[in-house]
């Protein structure tokens, strides 16, 4: 069943990747198998509408509302569905909470699994061989490359997304954010803090 191709079909297409895409799009459009307007719609969705601002709103609400946070951590799917954050690559969500004793970090060593409805399309580094290969074996050295150093008494739990479950890290609420509104809090939530390769932004840094 799994044929190993000596004459792989991709080798039949033009070598330049941009031309390869164009050739495939033209062929599939001529056959009536794809609609270029649908492609535009997919791209617009992930370029402009679905991105890390969704996840940031969830984190900010969890910081702001203990009941919401408890429900989110207990069973994320219905909570996120209520907010309209569901669908492709976010069908089965689990939210994991950072604490002073445990830092969570997410990787997909086998491909590039990532919670699209909450964070959008993964950044290039998340899909890179270096991140996929190293995040499980030396997460602290990888974190250092993101400028993050954890206290020695904080353990790291790396989640390798090997199934259709997608993980979102709930970062620790930064000091000095007491009394801030949900909207102000959301501005402290970076994309990387929800993957676990970053921390939430300190209010004084966000304000500067």
């Amino acid at each position: 069943m799994p044929h190993d191709h000596a004459d792989a079909p991709h080798s039949l297409l033009p070598p330049d990747p941009a031309l390869r895409v164009k050739a495939l799009e033209t062929l599939l459009t001529q056959k009536g198998l794809i609609d270029p307007a649908a492609l535009d719609e997919i791209i617009d969705t992930y370029q402009n509408r679905i991105g890390p601002a969704n996840g940031a709103r969830v984190v900010a609400r969890a910081w702001h509302d203990p009941g919401f946070k408890a429900a989110l951590l207990a069973d994320a799917d219905p909570v996120l569905a209520d907010l309209g954050y569901y669908g492709r690559q976010g069908e089965h969500m689990v939210v994991v909470e950072n604490t002073p004793v445990q830092h969570n970090m997410v990787v997909c060593t086998l491909c590039s699994c990532y919670p699209w409805p909450l964070l959008g399309i993964p950044p290039g580094w998340y899909k890179s061989d270096a991140y996929r290969a190293r995040a499980v074996r030396e997460p602290r050295r990888v974190l250092a490359e993101f400028g993050v150093t954890l206290p020695a008494d904080t353990s790291v739990r790396v989640w390798d997304s090997t199934a259709e479950v997608r993980y979102l890290v709930l970062p620790m609420r930064p000091e000095g954010s007491e009394g801030m509104s949900e909207e102000q809090l959301a501005a402290l939530v970076s994309r990387d803090s929800m993957i676990g390769t970053g921390l939430a932004i300190a209010p004084e840094v966000a304000a500067s």
Binding site: L33, I42, Y46, P123, G124
Partner: peptide, 27 residues
């Protein structure tokens, strides 16, 4: 090393990346 691009970097570094993703989903 892992080389993080800035957090504000475009979702698709090249137009053809976006096209490749969309064609794959559409197919």
């Amino acid at each position: 090393p892992v080389t993080p691009e800035p957090q504000g970097a475009p979702v698709f570094a090249e137009d053809w990346h976006a096209r490749a993703l969309a064609i794959t989903l559409a197919c």
